[in-house]
Design a protein around this nucleic acid. Structure first.
Lengths: 136, 136
DNA sequence: TTTATATCATATAAATTTGGTAGGATAAAT
DNA sequence: ATTTATCCTACCAAATTTATATGATATAAA
């Protein structure tokens, strides 16, 4: 399961996209509209900014706007930034690979084969951009 | 990501299937062959027994054997027993549904639609039985 | 009948992750 | 100056994860 952080991040970014004409949008506004604890959201937004998804403007009237095109930001990107791997086991992760410690031979491992298949089915869905998700 | 418990459970059951002629198989044997901490494995096997996946025989020469046909035990079953939901968010889970607290309208929620799609793609892969996985 | 081999059950514990909160510094508009 | 914001670090409680410990119970075999 996704963490609440990741779910909040997706909701916040989708809200930002749906209201992108009003930019910049403050954390307070997002927090109130999406029922996300304010201080928690601040942390999440900072993480998204540091990952170059968002940029921010300080001071009164400030807030957040996209740093990349929303059509170039995918759900998979967001999950990877906030939660880490998409794959269900580390040895089949493309971006967070870790060797299987209890596995004698990764080349023949049946479990690995299954979870590679799974990841391969998951990725096209999660590679949808904010724009595409909004149109669902 | 799956927990280690779930990964151990899958490995243990696959080992049991691959050695099913030698039943019953002791926790000790599985533990040594699959590098799973013995006492941790005992807990996992107990959970699988309580969920009717396995049955056990006590005393010397005892151990575990399948209670259901391996062709009827799927990876999804095992994950659900050990870790819970397959779905990445609770409001799209078939077996562990929970209402979205920050969601005003589940019927129109774009995020929900995406994660329903995802679950729908994931399930056929994870519904593979131990027999099918062994043949991969 | 003792011994070795097992499962069964419950409790404990350390480490990590999760889901926040607190307080204050900094920046900009009014 | 005041208000509205982001920025940053640190902290914290609760839950979860990954085990370990202890002992009871059951069975086969010596």
């Amino acid at each position: 399961m996704l963490s609440k952080r990741a779910r909040y991040a997706i909701k916040a970014l989708l809200f930002l996209y749906e209201n992108k004409e009003k930019t910049p949008i403050s954390a307070k506004l997002i927090s109130e509209n999406e029922n996300i604890p304010y201080k928690f959201l601040e942390n999440i937004l900072r993480e998204l900014r540091q990952s170059k998804i968002l940029k921010s403007e300080r001071g009164a009237g400030g807030g957040y706007r996209f740093s990349k095109e929303p059509s170039e930001i995918t759900i998979a990107d967001i999950i990877r930034i906030i939660d880490g791997p998409i794959a269900l086991i580390p040895c089949v992760s493309l971006n967070f690979y870790e060797k299987c410690d209890e596995c004698d031979d990764e080349a023949t491992c049946k479990i690995k084969k299954l979870f590679v298949q799974l990841r391969t089915e998951m990725l096209p869905i999660l590679n949808k951009s904010l724009v595409e998700v909004e149109r669902l």
